[in-house]
Amino acid sequence: MPFPDTEPYRQFQVVFKTYYNLLCNYALTFTKDADASEDIVQDLFIKIWEQRRELLQEASIRYYLFTAIRNNCITWLRREKQLATVPWNDHQTISQPAYYPEEPAEEKDERLLLERAISQLPPKCKEVFLLSRFGKLSYKEIAATLDISPKTVENQLGKALKMLRAFLKECGVCLTLILVAILP
């Protein structure tokens, strides 16, 4: 039972279930720490419920969530740097470096290659790309979040896609051929 079965709470559950995994993965790109990422995302949801419940019904919730997570992750990183905090023994860090796969044997897997390609994007370019691909935010929203112009967003995204394309080409993964094979 008895968490309130009311409209606002149903709304909360829907938003939570829709975005939780995505937001944690997004936070993970900053923190590289699964527990910390989950904490950051959970804290945000609690704050929304307690202070900004009206946001749950707004179309801009996506924009709000991603912008808030980015800000909170940056705050977290800053604090981690400042405070040499005592690590908990059971503190779990994702040991598998999702964004830095090294095993050359796996290079045939194009997804792993893509991962590596994304990890090698220049920082600013990567940040725009992540907000776009995770958050599916509009160029205007990304521009507002990062405090840059929509034109810069467009340019950085174009640059990202071009670099990913070039990287994959270089690695000899012939996506084009694969596609040709699939096409009738």
Binding site: Q13, F16, K17, Y20, N21, L22, C24, N25, Y26, L28, T29, A34, E38, V41, Q42, I94, A98, E110, R111, L114, E115, I118, F129, L130, R133, F134, L161, L164, R165, L168, L175, T176, L179
Partner: peptide
């Protein structure tokens, strides 16, 4: 090819599975 990269990068980035129910 470009569309595929664009689409796959979304999947690649969202690859770690968190326990949503437990978190909720």
């Amino acid at each position: 090819t470009l569309e595929r990269i664009w689409r796959d990068s979304g999947k690649v980035l969202n690859k770690h599975s968190f326990d949503v129910e437990a978190a909720l």
